[in-house]
Simulated assay, not measured.
Amino acid sequence: MRATRTAAAVSAILAGALLAAASPAIALTPAPHSGEPAPKRALATIKIKNYKSGKYLAAVSSANGAKVVQKSSSDSYLQRWETILTEGGTTYSWENWQSKLNLGIDRASTSAGAAAITATPSGDLNQDWDRVWEDYGPDGHAIKNRKSGMCLGVSGASTADGAQVAQFPCDGSANQGWIIVP
Protein backbone atom coordinates (compact mmCIF):
# COMPACT_ATOMS: atom_id res chain seq x y z
CA MET A 1 0.00 0.00 0.00
CA ARG A 2 2.84 2.34 0.91
CA ALA A 3 4.61 1.56 -2.39
CA THR A 4 1.43 2.46 -4.29
CA ARG A 5 1.17 5.82 -2.47
CA THR A 6 4.84 6.53 -3.09
CA ALA A 7 4.50 5.69 -6.80
CA ALA A 8 1.42 7.95 -7.05
CA ALA A 9 3.24 10.79 -5.27
CA VAL A 10 6.27 10.46 -7.57
CA SER A 11 3.97 10.46 -10.62
CA ALA A 12 2.20 13.59 -9.38
CA ILE A 13 5.51 15.36 -8.75
CA LEU A 14 6.81 14.43 -12.21
CA ALA A 15 3.57 15.58 -13.88
CA GLY A 16 3.76 18.88 -11.97
CA ALA A 17 7.38 19.36 -13.00
CA LEU A 18 6.52 18.75 -16.66
CA LEU A 19 3.67 21.27 -16.51
CA ALA A 20 5.90 23.82 -14.78
CA ALA A 21 8.59 23.35 -17.42
CA ALA A 22 6.09 23.87 -20.26
CA SER A 23 4.17 26.78 -18.76
CA PRO A 24 6.80 29.58 -18.64
CA ALA A 25 6.45 30.12 -22.37
CA ILE A 26 2.75 30.72 -21.88
CA ALA A 27 3.16 32.71 -18.69
CA LEU A 28 5.82 35.02 -20.17
CA THR A 29 3.87 35.91 -23.31
CA PRO A 30 3.25 39.65 -23.07
CA ALA A 31 -0.33 40.82 -23.13
CA PRO A 32 -1.15 43.42 -25.79
CA HIS A 33 -1.31 46.96 -24.50
CA SER A 34 -4.47 48.93 -25.08
CA GLY A 35 -2.57 51.60 -27.05
CA GLU A 36 -1.06 49.14 -29.54
CA PRO A 37 -2.68 48.77 -32.98
CA ALA A 38 -4.72 45.67 -33.63
CA PRO A 39 -2.79 42.94 -35.42
CA LYS A 40 -3.19 42.72 -39.18
CA ARG A 41 -5.30 39.88 -40.51
CA ALA A 42 -4.59 38.17 -43.83
CA LEU A 43 -7.79 37.72 -45.81
CA ALA A 44 -6.89 36.07 -49.10
CA THR A 45 -4.28 35.62 -51.81
CA ILE A 46 -5.48 37.36 -54.95
CA LYS A 47 -4.49 38.93 -58.25
CA ILE A 48 -5.24 42.58 -59.00
CA LYS A 49 -6.41 43.17 -62.59
CA ASN A 50 -6.42 46.56 -64.31
CA TYR A 51 -9.87 47.51 -65.58
CA LYS A 52 -8.62 49.10 -68.83
CA SER A 53 -5.79 46.78 -69.94
CA GLY A 54 -6.95 43.50 -68.42
CA LYS A 55 -3.37 42.98 -67.20
CA TYR A 56 -2.30 42.16 -63.66
CA LEU A 57 -0.34 44.07 -61.03
CA ALA A 58 3.10 42.45 -60.74
CA ALA A 59 6.41 43.12 -59.03
CA VAL A 60 9.31 42.88 -61.49
CA SER A 61 11.40 40.94 -58.95
CA SER A 62 11.42 39.88 -55.30
CA ALA A 63 14.01 42.56 -54.40
CA ASN A 64 13.23 45.34 -51.95
CA GLY A 65 12.32 48.43 -53.99
CA ALA A 66 11.28 46.44 -57.08
CA LYS A 67 9.07 48.38 -59.50
CA VAL A 68 5.45 47.34 -59.86
CA VAL A 69 4.11 47.04 -63.41
CA GLN A 70 1.20 45.47 -65.26
CA LYS A 71 1.74 42.08 -66.91
CA SER A 72 -0.31 39.57 -68.82
CA SER A 73 -1.58 36.75 -66.67
CA SER A 74 0.87 34.03 -65.76
CA ASP A 75 1.42 31.60 -62.94
CA SER A 76 4.13 33.85 -61.48
CA TYR A 77 3.90 34.39 -57.75
CA LEU A 78 5.10 37.96 -58.39
CA GLN A 79 1.50 38.58 -59.59
CA ARG A 80 -0.05 37.21 -56.38
CA TRP A 81 -0.84 39.49 -53.46
CA GLU A 82 -1.93 38.66 -49.97
CA THR A 83 -4.71 40.98 -48.85
CA ILE A 84 -4.14 42.18 -45.29
CA LEU A 85 -6.90 44.03 -43.47
CA THR A 86 -5.79 46.91 -41.23
CA GLU A 87 -7.31 49.85 -39.36
CA GLY A 88 -10.48 48.29 -38.06
CA GLY A 89 -11.46 46.69 -41.34
CA THR A 90 -11.49 49.65 -43.73
CA THR A 91 -7.92 49.79 -45.07
CA TYR A 92 -5.79 47.19 -46.85
CA SER A 93 -2.15 46.39 -47.35
CA TRP A 94 -1.10 44.10 -50.16
CA GLU A 95 1.91 41.89 -49.56
CA ASN A 96 3.53 40.29 -52.58
CA TRP A 97 3.20 36.54 -52.21
CA GLN A 98 6.71 35.73 -53.45
CA SER A 99 8.77 38.53 -51.92
CA LYS A 100 6.73 39.14 -48.72
CA LEU A 101 7.15 42.89 -49.43
CA ASN A 102 4.30 45.41 -49.35
CA LEU A 103 2.87 47.41 -52.22
CA GLY A 104 3.85 51.02 -51.61
CA ILE A 105 4.99 54.23 -53.27
CA ASP A 106 8.68 54.85 -53.96
CA ARG A 107 10.27 56.92 -51.16
CA ALA A 108 6.78 57.36 -49.61
CA SER A 109 6.28 60.21 -52.09
CA THR A 110 3.08 62.22 -52.21
CA SER A 111 3.80 63.47 -55.75
CA ALA A 112 1.71 62.60 -58.79
CA GLY A 113 3.47 60.07 -60.99
CA ALA A 114 5.52 58.51 -58.16
CA ALA A 115 6.17 54.86 -58.96
CA ALA A 116 4.60 51.93 -57.17
CA ILE A 117 7.16 49.54 -55.67
CA THR A 118 7.39 46.66 -53.24
CA ALA A 119 9.11 47.46 -49.95
CA THR A 120 9.81 46.06 -46.51
CA PRO A 121 6.67 46.42 -44.39
CA SER A 122 7.12 49.62 -42.41
CA GLY A 123 3.75 50.63 -41.03
CA ASP A 124 3.94 53.88 -43.06
CA LEU A 125 0.66 55.04 -44.59
CA ASN A 126 2.18 54.86 -48.09
CA GLN A 127 1.75 51.08 -47.82
CA ASP A 128 -1.94 51.31 -46.84
CA TRP A 129 -4.70 51.48 -49.41
CA ASP A 130 -8.43 52.18 -49.45
CA ARG A 131 -10.73 50.55 -51.99
CA VAL A 132 -12.97 53.25 -53.45
CA TRP A 133 -15.98 51.97 -55.35
CA GLU A 134 -16.21 53.81 -58.65
CA ASP A 135 -17.92 53.06 -61.94
CA TYR A 136 -15.67 50.15 -62.94
CA GLY A 137 -18.33 47.50 -63.32
CA PRO A 138 -19.82 45.46 -60.49
CA ASP A 139 -16.45 44.29 -59.11
CA GLY A 140 -14.17 47.21 -59.94
CA HIS A 141 -12.82 49.95 -57.71
CA ALA A 142 -10.06 52.52 -57.39
CA ILE A 143 -7.15 51.84 -55.04
CA LYS A 144 -6.37 55.02 -53.10
CA ASN A 145 -3.12 55.53 -51.19
CA ARG A 146 -3.70 56.60 -47.59
CA LYS A 147 -0.64 58.84 -47.42
CA SER A 148 -0.97 60.78 -50.68
CA GLY A 149 -4.70 60.45 -51.26
CA MET A 150 -3.90 59.54 -54.89
CA CYS A 151 -5.10 56.54 -56.88
CA LEU A 152 -3.07 53.68 -58.30
CA GLY A 153 -3.01 53.75 -62.10
CA VAL A 154 -0.99 52.73 -65.12
CA SER A 155 1.38 55.40 -66.42
CA GLY A 156 0.19 56.98 -69.67
CA ALA A 157 -2.96 54.81 -69.49
CA SER A 158 -0.83 52.23 -71.30
CA THR A 159 -2.13 48.77 -72.12
CA ALA A 160 1.38 47.38 -72.79
CA ASP A 161 3.00 44.60 -70.79
CA GLY A 162 5.57 46.04 -68.40
CA ALA A 163 3.97 49.51 -68.18
CA GLN A 164 4.83 51.22 -64.87
CA VAL A 165 2.16 51.48 -62.19
CA ALA A 166 2.19 54.76 -60.24
CA GLN A 167 -0.05 57.10 -58.26
CA PHE A 168 -2.11 59.90 -59.81
CA PRO A 169 -4.87 62.28 -58.72
CA CYS A 170 -8.05 60.20 -58.66
CA ASP A 171 -10.07 60.99 -61.79
CA GLY A 172 -12.21 57.91 -62.44
CA SER A 173 -10.30 57.01 -65.61
CA ALA A 174 -10.29 53.37 -66.71
CA ASN A 175 -6.55 52.96 -66.07
CA GLN A 176 -7.23 53.69 -62.36
CA GLY A 177 -9.79 50.89 -62.10
CA TRP A 178 -8.86 47.55 -60.53
CA ILE A 179 -10.63 44.24 -60.09
CA ILE A 180 -9.73 41.75 -57.36
CA VAL A 181 -9.43 38.24 -58.83
CA PRO A 182 -9.24 35.16 -56.58
Rank of each mutant, 00 (worst) to 15 (best):
Val10Ala: 10
Ser11Ile: 13
Ser11Arg: 13
Ala17Phe: 08
Ala21Arg: 08
Ala22Met: 10
Pro24Ile: 02
Ile26Cys: 14
Ala27Asn: 15
Ser34Val: 15
Glu36Cys: 14
Pro37Gln: 07
Tyr51Met: 04
Lys52Ile: 03
Tyr56Asp: 03
Tyr56Val: 00
Leu57Gln: 08
Ala58Met: 15
Ala58Ile: 02
Ala59Met: 03
Val60His: 02
Val60Leu: 09
Val60Trp: 01
Val60Asn: 14
Ser62Ile: 05
Ser62Gln: 14
Ala63Pro: 04
Asn64Tyr: 01
Gly65Gln: 01
Ala66Arg: 03
Lys67Leu: 10
Lys67Cys: 06
Gln79Leu: 02
Gln79Ile: 00
Trp81Cys: 02
Trp81Asn: 03
Thr90Arg: 15
Thr90His: 11
Tyr92Thr: 06
Trp94Ser: 00
Trp94Asn: 01
Gln98Lys: 14
Leu101Ala: 02
Gly104Phe: 00
Gly104Ala: 10
Ala108Gly: 15
Ser109Asp: 04
Ser111Cys: 09
Ala112Asn: 13
Ala115Glu: 12
Ile117Met: 04
Ile117Phe: 00
Thr118Pro: 00
Ser122Leu: 00
Gly123Ile: 03
Asn126Ala: 06
Gln127Arg: 01
Asp130Phe: 15
Arg131Phe: 15
Trp133Gly: 12
Glu134Tyr: 11
Asp135Glu: 14
Tyr136Ala: 05
Asp139Trp: 11
Gly140Gln: 07
Arg146Tyr: 02
Met150Ser: 08
Leu152Phe: 03
Leu152Met: 12
Gly153Lys: 04
Gly153Asp: 08
Gly156Lys: 09
Gly156Tyr: 06
Ala163Trp: 00
Gln164Ile: 09
Ala166Pro: 03
Gly172Glu: 10
Ser173Glu: 08
Ser173Trp: 05
Asn175Lys: 05
Gly177Lys: 06
Gly177Ala: 07
Val181Asn: 05
Val181Trp: 02
Pro182Tyr: 11
Pro182Cys: 09
